[in-house]
């Protein structure tokens, strides 16, 4: 089964992003089952790694003005966080 792909915007120095620790971030779904939902954003509790292979899904990284980084990271989404309840 193909890996799911997400992306996220990193507004700080990439080196400051903690790896292998639970953190909350906003991710966008790039490979939804229904294509109409592409780019749907969600708050998620997740663990990330700068290694492309460590976690089940791919995470593409963009900087604050949308600059796409060349190599993807990997991500394990633990749960979605609902900010609107």
């Amino acid at each position: 089964m193909a890996r799911k792909e997400y992306d996220t915007f990193v507004l700080t120095d990439l080196a400051l992003i903690p790896e292998d620790k639970e953190m909350e971030l906003i991710v966008r779904d790039l490979t939804p089952a229904d294509r109409r939902y592409k780019y749907r954003s969600t708050f998620a509790m997740a663990m990330v790694s700068k290694s492309e292979s460590k976690y089940p899904d791919l995470l593409w990284v963009r900087l604050g003005r949308g600059q796409l980084q060349e190599k993807p990271w990997s991500i394990k989404i633990i749960k979605e966080v609902n900010k609107f309840s």
Binding site: R28, Y39, S41, R65, G66
Partner: peptide, 10 residues
């Protein structure tokens, strides 16, 4: 639409 590549969303 996703208007420009690199936009924060649609």
């Amino acid at each position: 639409p996703m208007v420009h590549d690199g936009d924060g969303g649609r």
